[in-house]
Simulated scan of single mutants.
Amino acid sequence: MSDAPAPEPAIIARGLTMRGPWGPVYGPVDLEVAAGGVTVLVCPAGSGRTALSMTLAGRMRPRSGTLSVFGRTRVQDIFAAAALAGIDELDTVAESVTVRDLITEQLRWDARWYKLIRRADEADLARVCGPVFGELPLPPLSEYVEELTELDGLLLRIALANTNRPPLLVVGNLEQVTSDHNRDLLVGRLVDLGRDQTVLTASVNGVTGHPVRQVPVANVSRAELAGQQKGGS
């Protein structure tokens, strides 16, 4: 039996809360996410879950509580250590653009300001999308986003967000892929990415058939928050 200490969790959240103009959004939330692999937050869909995902990726500042992501506690440092994809409020793309357009834009965004970046070609498609799509067929460069399947559309958004391969990858939620078969393929791809990153996503009903960790999270739905207020009044 090994006496080596357990590795420090990738994410430690204590008492996180968020409020908006109309009242509580989520919290208090206590959470630990182990480093590496895929962790699925099992909780109701809605604005609370979305805001929590954005907070854990350093895109929102909580009202109260503490958050550490790979030892980083400042929002800007957490932001730099995390990629976020599949959040409609942040990375929705116009349907009338092509895969080539999106990859070209991302390559230009990632490049030094003085570098001239040509339009994306097949090699760029493979470099950006290959690690995320794995053995699945890559979308054609000429394909319009509106013509992509739900699975391909989300995998493309993940690929664009993940070009720099930060330690943490947060994917909004699994239910945006409505086909059971395609959702199973999506989880399989996230498991593969979890070999080199810590992957965090969310689901209403959880995941079966894959080696993922599942963490129930409370206090992210309107009903839960309303119950708190009623109980405290």
Results as ranks from 00 to 15, higher is better:
N164G: 11
E105H: 13
S203C: 01
R213V: 09
I12V: 15
R108Y: 07
P139S: 04
A218F: 10
M54A: 11
G46R: 09
R165Q: 15
N162Q: 04
H181E: 15
V75E: 15
T98D: 06
Q197N: 09
S142H: 13
E224K: 04
D121L: 11
Q76N: 07
G130T: 04
E105K: 05
S64Y: 08
P44K: 06
G86H: 02
T163W: 12
L225T: 10
W113D: 14
V220I: 07
R127V: 04
S47G: 00
I78Y: 10
F79A: 11
D110C: 13
L148H: 01
E224C: 08
A94S: 11
H210E: 08
E89Y: 05
V212H: 06
D30V: 09
R63L: 14
K115N: 03
L193C: 08
T17V: 11
M54W: 09
L52P: 11
I117G: 06
E147L: 13
L16M: 00
D124V: 08
S203D: 05
S221G: 12
P131W: 03
L56T: 06
V29Q: 04
V199N: 12
P21T: 10
E32P: 01
L200C: 06
T66Y: 10
N164W: 15
A161G: 10
P131Q: 01
L41Y: 02
T73G: 03
N205S: 12
R157V: 00
E224M: 09
P139H: 03
R112T: 14
T92R: 01
L141R: 03
R157I: 00
W113F: 14
N219S: 00
G46N: 04
E8I: 13
K230W: 11
R19V: 11
R74H: 12
E150K: 06
L186M: 08
V33R: 05
P28I: 09
G20F: 10
L155K: 00
P21E: 10
V69S: 05
Q176V: 14
F133Y: 02
